[in-house]
Design a protein around this nucleic acid. Sequence first.
DNA 1: ATAGGGTTAG
Length: 888
Amino acid sequence: MSTVTNATSLDFEGVLYHNFAASFASTSLPTLPRLHCQLCPIATQLLRPDFAAPALFDCRSASPPRLRCLNFARLPLGFSASTSLPQLPTTARLLRRGNTPTNNARRLGTNKRKQQQPSSLDQLPRSLDGASASISTTRRRSTRVNQAHVARVLFNFINSSHIQEALSLFESIKKPDTFLWNLMIRGYANTELYEEAMDIYRQMQDAGVWADHFTFPFVIKSFANSSSYEDGLKLHGKLFKIGLDSDIFICNSLIAMYVKFGLLEDAEKVFYEMPVRDDVSWNSLVDGYVSNGEGMMSLLFLKQMQQVFGMKLDCFAMTSALAACSLEKCLKQGKEIHCYVIKNGLDSDIKLQTSLLDMYCKTGEMIYAKILFNFIYGRNVVTWNVLIGGYALNDEPLQAFSSAIQMQANGINPNAITLVNLLSACAEIRSMHHGKAIHALATRKGFISHLVLDTALLDMYAKCGDLKSMQLLFEMMSEKSLVSWNTIIAALVQHGRNIEAVQLFLELQRGPLQPDVFTISSVISAYAELASLRKGKQIHNYIMKSGYGSDCVVLNSIIHMYARCGHLDASRQVFDKMMCKDLVSWNTLIMGYGIHGHGKTALELFSAMKDIGLRPDQSTFTSVLTACSVTGLTDEGWLHFSSMQQEYGMTPEIEHYGCMVDLLGRLGDLKAAIEFIRKMPSVPSTRIWASLLTASRNNKNIEVAEYAAERIFQLENDNTGCYVLLSSMYADARKWDDVERVMSLMKHKGLKKMTPQSLVELNGKSCTFVNGDKFHAESSRIHEVSSILSSKIVKDIVELGTIFNPINIATKKANFPNRHSARLAVIFGLISSPLGSPVLVKKNVRVCNHCHEAIKLISGFCGRKIIVGDTKIFHHFVNGKCSCGDYW
DNA sequence: ATAGGGTTAG
């Protein structure tokens, strides 16, 4: 890719250091040697006698979590936590187990062979020849001795991960017994070669050798990790038949398998029905809840485990519990666990410390995180990655970069995940420059292709607005996950390329991957812009029937979809019925009321939201300020704009400034608007200049319009909307030469004016109109009514000479305002629907002022409510007035 | 001989 080659000469330290030198200088992560017995300040605080560790049950959140009942009632009478608690203390167990292989490869979906560890076992034969030789010597002795020796050799091969040697030896054995088969299956399963493990198991069955209680845990693990759903369920049935379904090891493996398949109820069933449980059984379920997104359930289960059944939490339980706290943003509970960790002297466990650090990062407590980080002994690349990821997540991209530099200064090399975290920091600050540098670095370091890294790159290009690079990279990716698909579908929707988004969605469905809630909510948004209420309702129905009907993310996008389809009541209904409203649900509904000009209702919702204890975020203020600007609530707008800074300590973003420019424009004070833009702390973007252009259009100020347009063209010289708006302003001012100049400039640039279209829906059928449309079955009636209406009520608002150069007026017939698509659609809606019912029209471009004026009059004349939705807002025309207050 | 754990993308 050219984008990569341009930047390959850049080097990590160089690029980052030069660009972030300032922030680097101010960062002072201590490099002092630290004693790990030294108590960190957080610990001191947590251990103070007056620190009341909150109960885990005290999980107060604004929206009640989805909780299933903990079904301890299902347990047989006299149930105790365990009848066979582990004999070994936890630390000893850990030591005994040694370093288990990381499961990164599994999670990344790669199935690469693990690097073979150098053999440190002296008793191991140097080569297979040696092994065969020793076998042939033993062959002379009795068969029993021979078998035992082969078993020992194979055992050593397996334990030292010499799988190839083990296989050759295994294949040379005439009739391997169950133990030898088990060794082979274990060897493959423990080196993440699950397909091979399953293959050996099948061969074992074919050979007619009985599998025993040692065989199945590995087979189940292989099924679980290779997503062999059907095989897994079948195997459970078989275990029941042969009476092995109560073995503790097998049950624990089954719990883990069901957890991986996302079948929590089945995992619970195994747990409740197994005759004996140990800490692994409990921990597997605690972890099962978290990894399936049920953090609250996990914490409750953990509390029960501890309080009711008197189980002591070990490192595994606490790691899962911390993940649950991160997921549910339960800082108090996280601190309680931190407290527990310190009291039990577990603060030397690097994995547990990293989990604690992650919890503080995910709950947004970066100050705590940094203090803790400084006190972690033996920080590794993962510890650093968590910190860097924390900064990226908490809107401190510069800190993320400077931490990466610090990390290297401490002699720790970045890995692919470090770069993933840095890419999200680049995306955050929309810095394509740094994003590309990291792309180049990733290439040089040989991290490409890495599925997650590639996906992070997709996201970075998407957020920085370079959809071309994004699509190019997507096509080049050798492996794509659902997240990769979701990233580009969401990006296309965000950039208004809805048709392409829907096409990709259909393409995705043809492949092996199944869409999830994120895919579905993106596609709902695409349909919301593309299609109609009818299509929207169909999708709503489809979703309610599918398993996604109670998902918060999906329901939020349905709220958005109905609002965009002009059906605000439906949005409200969905919102009211939602069991799990989150901040996004509120933001979406407030925005819905905002774009429909119901500013007061939007503000009422905003206070209701704050009353239940939800803290507004940047998007909430975008919704609130949009509502104020669309409805013209100037005082409220300024009030909320300043409260977002003073009360909530937020830095307003471009969108917020844009809303304020809209408000100033609405007052007609263009000077104040320009002054406001001039004083903005960030560089004004197209969004800002477009607001100024709109303001000058509404205030008929050509000079300011030219100034704003010039700025827009500097940033985006292919902004079609800007050319069109400018030329129509020149037309209104009868500056025909300028009209010609702008239009020919546009033509010269190869830009095409978007064909205005209006869509009206009747009896479940949607009809699209273009300007001067003659192809509709009812065309003649529509034009007839149009001319009657024009002559009766709107004749004097439009003089054709004011919008077309008299010279070529004859050729512009189709574009006469009384033939504009919006007018045709409105009239068709009026004559085809029952008297009194409202008419809804959707436009793909903004409404022109002639149509706006005309539709206002038509609504008064017919006594009908007419709603016209454009790309930005919805105009509600009632009794000759429009909800937008004639400013849009 | 057997089962479970930390970081990442929307």
